[in-house]
Amino acid sequence: MRFALLLFGLLAAGALLPYAPQADVHPAAADLPASAAHLLGTDHLGRDVLARLLAGSRAFLVPGAGAALLAGLGGVGLGTLAGWYGGVVEGLVRGGLGAITAVPPLVLALLVMMAVGATPTGLALGVGLAALPGLAEVVADRLAELRRAEFVVAARALGLGDLRILAWHLLWVNTRTLVGREALAIVGQALVLEVTLSYLGRFGVQEPAPSWGNMIDHALRTGSVNPWTWAAPAGAVMLAVWAANPAGGRR
């Protein structure tokens, strides 16, 4: 919930600010401290730090949403197959997921980004593929636990078909909260990866487009005297990761 509120706040505030995060370059107003006109001051090129901070959230929100969608669709599909059918199908699905999780997540995300390109789509595919096994296993475990529950037996006795029991009673009623939490955690993972790639360079968002990672990197490299240039994005990352972690329940 707090993560959803944070995301909504970021998007809403971004739309209300009067500054363009990329175009408003004013070298004469470089490194201004926080004031009423610039709530977090300006960076080394005179750009409003708050405007860039809010615009920078899009660098992980859009790929994060894409990754959550990919992992959600794939994970729920594969998890349902494994959890509902069990036996050989479960063995095959879990074996396949085990092969994906054997490749470290950052390594897999980088390989995917090299194949697709260091773009938001590449980031979404990389994070989505790396997060898919975790979500699939959560769904599979849940369905394996529920498929022999008394209410499922009762529903069958009342003449309900497998598809309805699976889609409504098991997935929608009993699993959707779990999947929602996992999806939020995946957005958090996209943020961490985006910050990592942008800070380490090469594969991240490139200037002048803002991202929290490249804001920290540039602030430290240019030695800006306005501490908000690095403290604001670093604090935002910590807040967002903190908000996403307890909600998601996994790293």
Partner: peptide
């Protein structure tokens, strides 16, 4: 400990 490794290393 939820702080990303990149920020922890930087800090």
């Amino acid at each position: 400990s939820a702080l990303p490794a990149v920020l922890a290393a930087l800090a």
